[in-house]
Every structure is written in C-alpha cells, then in structure tokens.
Computed example of a mutant assay.
Amino acid sequence: MTNGATGKIDFNADIGESFAGYELGLDSEIVKYITSANIATGFHAGDPDWMAKTVALAIDNQVGIGAHPAYPDLAGFGRRNMDLTPDEVHNAVTYQVGALSAFAPGRKLQHVKPHGALYNTAVRDAAVAEAIVSAVKAFDPNLIHVVLAGSQWEEIARAQGVRVARECYADRAVTAEGTLVPRSQPGAVVHDPDEVVARSLKLATEGKVTAVDGTEIDFSADSICLHGDTAGAVELAAAVRSSLESAGVEITPMNKLVAGG
C-alpha cells in the first residue's frame, strides 16, 4: 500500500537549475505546488548564487530542501553516464551535499536525491548505489535517501538502516521491470497533461503504474516527482496537486512521512 493509499504523499521537483546569467525553469512558480525541492548543486547545473537563491525560495515557501548531486557533467546536464569509481562517486556526492548544506538553515538538509545518469546508474549498479548511500549516511545519518521505488538501490539503502523515501514519477515512462525508460527512447517523457495527472492519481491512490508495454505494475511510493524542465511544468504541478487533493490525498513533506529524523 502506498502512503497515497493511506491519504498522504510527498510532491517533489528538480529546481535551481539556472547557471550564471541564464535562468532556466519557473522555480518561483513551481515551488508553490511542491513539498520537497531537489536543488542542483553545481555539477550538472546551478552555481553558488543560484543555490543560495533557490534555498531561500524553498524556505519562503516552506518546502523541504534537498541536494540534487550529479556526475560532473555540465555540458551534458548530468544525463551522460560516467565511469567513476565508487570512491569518486562517494566524494562527488559528499562535495555536492556539503556545498548545498552550507546555504541551508543550521546547515541541515531534508534529503538527497541524485540527478540524471547518477540516479539511473544507482538503480542498476549496486556499487554506485552503495557509494551514494554511504556518502549521504556519513555526511548526516538523519538525511532522507530518495531512491527509485522497488529498486535494488532501495534494498541497499534499507540494509544500511537509513531513512528512505521511495520515489515515482508523474512525467516519466517506466519499463515492466519498474525502471525509467531511457530518455534516448521515444515516449520516455510523458507530455500529455491529462496522462500525467491520471498517472499521478493511480500512483498515489492505488500504488500502481502502467508500464510502456501496457502491463500494470505495483509501484508503492512516498513521493511523486515532476521535472521542473518538462514543458508546462507549472501548469502540470498545479493540476497534479489539485487532482490529488480532490481525491483526498494529503500532500505532505517527506520528512513527515519517513520514520526517524
């Protein structure tokens, strides 16, 4: 059973992806509808000035602050895989989480959610997942680890005794195995607003999702993610939140859903 089936789920989005003089996304609008923010930490997007601004924006809107570490891949927006050793992954995550925490009140973050290729690699590569989990745990054992629901990454995190938020996606297609369809493949991103809303409702109230091959699979989650760079993201966020609340689902920060802390 999902938290949504019991009436509560977190709603997160990736924001803070502007860089220097280039403002990307409508962060000041989308933040009004979410409960948790994954803030870029400089390796795929963002910089110190935008990190500071985005943390302040999250605070002003009472949104949970999370680090969104990535592979060091500005040119590829962190979406290209990199052959890093587990130690290099551990250090890269530590560096980025530390950077964002320096801007947070009391140097405390709510969660860590890896970005792009680093996230997808953690789903299929146990060594990378172990490196991420160990880095976040060593930095702050109270941090919530946002992981793809039902993945081996979730199992690895739970085995380490850390706080875990299982994540699903409003606007990303999944395979019958429950993994995200690679962005290089057609249909990986769901653009139809009605379909995004319907998928979100099904995830939150039934704990199920329809995979790309048409099969319905179980997908119990604590948090739904909507990408801030998806076309019409603000309108989508408003529609998803409104429909969830209309269905009796309480949008709740993950810090209040995940035990511990």
Rank of each mutant, 00 (worst) to 15 (best):
I9A: 04
D10G: 06
D10L: 01
I15W: 01
E17Q: 05
G21C: 13
S28I: 14
I30A: 10
Y33K: 10
T35D: 06
I39A: 00
A40T: 05
G42R: 00
F43S: 12
D47F: 07
A52R: 15
T54C: 12
V55E: 08
A56I: 14
L57D: 15
I59R: 14
D60H: 15
G64Y: 01
H68P: 10
R80N: 04
D83W: 07
L84Y: 13
E88I: 07
V93Y: 02
T94H: 11
L100A: 04
L100T: 02
P105T: 04
G106D: 14
R107N: 15
Q110F: 02
V112H: 01
Y119P: 07
R124E: 11
I132K: 00
N142R: 05
V147P: 02
W153V: 00
E154R: 01
Q160L: 08
R163Q: 02
R166V: 02
R166N: 02
T175N: 14
P182N: 14
A188Q: 09
A188L: 11
V189H: 14
D192P: 11
E195R: 13
R199G: 03
L203M: 10
A204W: 09
K208F: 02
G214K: 14
A231F: 13
E235R: 12
L236K: 03
E245F: 00
A247F: 12
G248W: 11
V249N: 10
M254G: 03
M254S: 09
N255Q: 05
N255V: 06
K256G: 09
K256W: 09
